[in-house]
Amino acid sequence: MQTDSPNKPVEALNPEPSTQNHQPGTLKHRHLLGLADYDADEIRLILQTAREMKAILERPIKRVPSLRGVTVVNLFFEASTRTRISFELAEKRLSAEVVNFSASGSSVSKGETLKDTARNIEAMKTDVVIIRHSSPGAPHFLTRCIRGVVINAGDGAHEHPTQALLDLLTMAELELPKQPGLADFDFAGLNVSILGDVAHSRVARSNIYGLKALGAEVTLCGPRTMLPVEAETLGVRVTDRLDDALDGCDVAMALRIQLERQGAGPTGLFPSLREYHDRFGIRLEHLDRYPDLRIMHPGPVNRGVELASEVVDHERAVILDQVTNGVAVRMAVLYLLSGGSTLE
C-alpha cells in the first residue's frame, strides 16, 4: 500500500475492490467505508455474524477473546456519545485494546492535518482505526495515509455504515406478517420511509444503500429543502407529503432534526420546529391510522419534533432495540475486518 501519496491520480484509478483471493464467509473489502460498495452477500454476512455476536451479549460474561492483541483507535473528530460508546463496548467485548482520541473541530483548526494525526497514531502500532469526521470522504483519505483497517463511524453527510447495519438488523427482527423473508435478510417487498433532513443525513444514505441491496423499497420524505437534488437517482421514491410516505409503509425511520438548521439565516431549511412537527412529525394519530407501522430513529431523539413524545415510548417504536443491535453489529464488523480467529 502506498502511503506517501494520498492523492492518487484520477486517471489511474482502480475503483473495483480487490476480489482476488476472496474466501467464502469473509468480506471482499479490507475496510468499511460505506455500504454503497458492499454487496448483499457481504451485508448479509455481517448481519448473520452480528446475530451470533448478539448471542454473546446475552451471556453472563459478555466477552470473547477474538481480538486479543488487536489495538483499535477510536478517532473521533466530531462530538459523539452513543456511537463512540457503542464502538468501545464492541471492541472491549472482543478483547481488543482500545484507545480513544477525540478532537473537536477540524484537523485544520487543530493545527495538525488528519494525515499527520493518523500516521502518528499508527506509528504507535495500532491495527484498526474507527473514524468519525465532518468531511465526507475522510475515511477514504485515511486509507491512503495509513496501512491499518479503516471503519467509517460517520463522515459528514456521506455514510454511517454501522448505523445502517444496526438498522437492518433491527428490521430483520421485526415480526411483520407480510414480510416472512426478513429473518433471512431478504427485504423484498419491505417498504421503508426515511423522514426528515435526508440531504444532510449520513444515516439516510447508508440506509438507502443497505436497504436497496437487500431488496427493500425506500421512500424519502421531507420538505423539499431537506431532500437532496436528483434524489430519485438513488433508486428511491421521493415525496414531500407525510401521508404519502406512511401509506403502505412498514417502517418509518425519522431522522434527527439538527436544530441549528432551523432559521439559520436566509438559507435555513425550515421556519420553526413547531411547523416542522405539524407537517412532518409522527404523532399518535399516525400510529392509529397505520396499525402495522413500526417506528425507528437513529437517536438522539428530539421529543416533540420529529416524533411526538408518546410515539418515542410506544411499543411499536424499536429505538432501543436499535441501540442494542449497534454493539452486536460493530462487534461483527470488527471481527470480520480484523481477521478475528474464533468466536469462543
Binding site: 456521506h158 440531504a199 443525513s201 444514505r205 437517482t233
Partner: peptide
C-alpha cells in the same frame, strides 16, 4: 454566492450520492 451554500462539488446526482455540499 448566496446560491452557493458552502459547496465543495457540483450539486447533482453524484453530490447527492456522496453527501458532499453542492455548488449549484
Amino acid at each position: 454566492l448566496t446560491l452557493n451554500d458552502h459547496g465543495h462539488m457540483h450539486e447533482g446526482a453524484v453530490a447527492t450520492r456522496l453527501g458532499v455540499p453542492g455548488i449549484p
